[in-house]
Computed example of a mutant assay.
Amino acid sequence: MVSYKGEDLNGYVISAPPVLYFYSATNKGLSWTEVQEKYPVEYEEWYTSRRYTKPPRGESYQDMLQRVLASIHKIINENSENVVIVTHSAVIMCVQCYLTNTPFDKMTNFKTSNTSITELNSDLFL
């Protein structure tokens, strides 16, 4: 995770461990197709209940959400200026489902493009 503070990117950069990251088999060398082929039962269970089911060698979206929300709260509490957080689409979709009370099987409603910007007000997290 990288967050930028200040009015522009000439502010200072805070680097942090990858706490705003989704750990799954796909970022351990397998594509989603390979996961589906190699672990069909587990994949189907995860696909139908992705918020609470852990994919093979991964974490559930709920596990990730707990880590992400703790990190976001820490960032909000330690900063009074605007902050930019750089993260992955899965994290953004998960947080938006949480904030809008949307079932996680509908998370692709919040799909983002690469390098897109999603703006969220810190008041949503209080």
Rank of each mutant, 00 (worst) to 15 (best):
Q36K: 10
T33S: 04
H88L: 01
E78A: 10
R50Q: 07
A70Y: 02
S89W: 04
C94P: 07
Q36F: 02
Y52F: 06
N10Q: 08
V68F: 12
A25L: 12
Y39K: 03
K111E: 15
W46Y: 04
L30T: 15
H73Y: 12
P40Y: 08
N27Y: 09
R57W: 05
F110W: 05
E81R: 11
V95T: 07
L9K: 12
Y4H: 12
S80C: 11
F125P: 04
P18C: 14
T26C: 15
Q96C: 08
N79G: 00
A90M: 11
N109R: 07
N121Q: 02
N101S: 05
K28A: 15
D8Y: 11
V91I: 14
T118I: 04
V84C: 08
A90I: 10
N77D: 01
G29I: 06
Y52K: 08
T26L: 14
T118W: 00
T53M: 02
V35Y: 12
N101T: 12
R51W: 12
I117Y: 10
Y98M: 09
T87W: 06
S24N: 03
V95F: 06
M107Q: 00
S49Y: 14
I92P: 04
H88W: 05
V2G: 14
Y23Q: 14
E44T: 10
L20G: 13
T100P: 11
P55Y: 13
P103R: 08
N101L: 06
D105H: 15
W46V: 03
E42R: 12
P55S: 10
R50G: 10
D105N: 09
I14D: 04
V19N: 10
N27A: 03
K54Y: 00
E45Y: 00
M93S: 15
E81Q: 13
R50P: 06
K5G: 08
M93K: 11
S24T: 12
V35K: 13
F110C: 07
S49E: 15
S15I: 01
L99C: 01
L124S: 00
N121F: 05
V83H: 04
K38F: 02
S71L: 01
V41E: 01
Y52P: 08
N77Y: 01
D105W: 11
E37W: 03
Q62H: 01
S60I: 03
V86R: 02
L65M: 04
L30P: 13
N82P: 07
D105I: 14
S71Q: 03
T115L: 15
V68G: 10
V2A: 00
V84T: 03
L30V: 14
S122F: 01
V91H: 08
N109H: 09
M1Q: 01
Y21H: 06
V95I: 02
E37F: 09
F22K: 13
